[in-house]
């Protein structure tokens, strides 16, 4: 464990908590892409199947349980509890365009052709594009509530911090995982446009709401 990965995990945890709080306190999931949240739930389910077979540390197992629980709690809030506020009309990204290529790629490029490893690889590829429906929805509605933009900033920062962690681990431990690194870079690059708008939001006139041009 290093400080960059710890900061990344905390940023990830913060993002998930911000999202849960936003939906719970505003009793609405307006502006939130249910499709992205489904992708994240699939991602963590496919990645954490080793929860019971491969004990790394108490921290690792605890975080896996938290991320899984929060992912499904978010799905429950969106599709059951506050279903009436779910914005079907703007959450229209064709997720099959994400699922099919990532499944094919995980079968073709992986570390080991075993079920668990292919599922892990699939989760890495899927996570890198899982935010697209959300970013697409924000660009379609033309704006995001400030709390949603904080959620996206924390979520985007998590994998950016992981990239620093991988640089550190390469020099400190000679460890590198090309699949995670390439997917992590893609994932972070997808947020660049958003990061720019989020950071310059303060200097743009009447930027009360986050507006992302289509």
């Amino acid at each position: 464990m290093n400080v960059f990965r710890l900061a990344g995990d905390i940023s990830h945890l913060l993002a998930i908590i911000i999202l849960l709080l936003k939906i719970w306190t505003s009793r609405s999931c307006a502006g939130i892409s249910g499709k992205s949240q489904v992708m994240f739930a699939i991602t963590y389910t496919a990645r954490y199947l080793d929860l019971f077979t491969n004990f790394i540390s108490l921290y690792n197992s605890t975080m896996k349980i938290i991320f899984l629980g929060a992912a499904y709690a978010t799905l429950y809030l969106i599709y059951v509890r506050f279903k009436a506020t779910y914005d079907h009309n703007h959450d229209t990204f064709r997720v099959e365009f994400l699922l099919i290529p990532t499944v094919i790629l995980s079968v073709l490029i992986n570390h080991d052709f075993s079920p668990l490893e292919i599922l892990w690889t699939f989760s890495i590829y899927l996570e890198s594009v899982a935010i697209l429906p959300q970013l697409f929805m924000v660009s379609k509605t033309g704006e995001a509530e400030s709390i949603t933009s904080h959620y996206l900033f924390a979520l985007g920062s998590y994998r950016a911090l992981y990239i620093i962690n991988w640089v550190y681990r390469y020099y400190a431990e000679g460890f590198y995982d090309l699949i995670a690194i390439v997917a992590g870079v893609v994932q972070t690059v997808l947020y660049c446009d958003f990061f720019y708008l989020y950071i310059t939001k303060g200097s743009r006139a009447n930027a009360t709401e986050m507006s992302i041009e289509a």
Binding site: R5, D50, N54, I56, N60, K64, H111, E117, W120, L178
Partner: peptide
């Protein structure tokens, strides 16, 4: 062909 490895990251 890519090294096998135990995944210790989240």
């Amino acid at each position: 062909w890519l090294p096998k490895r135990k995944h210790d990251e989240l």
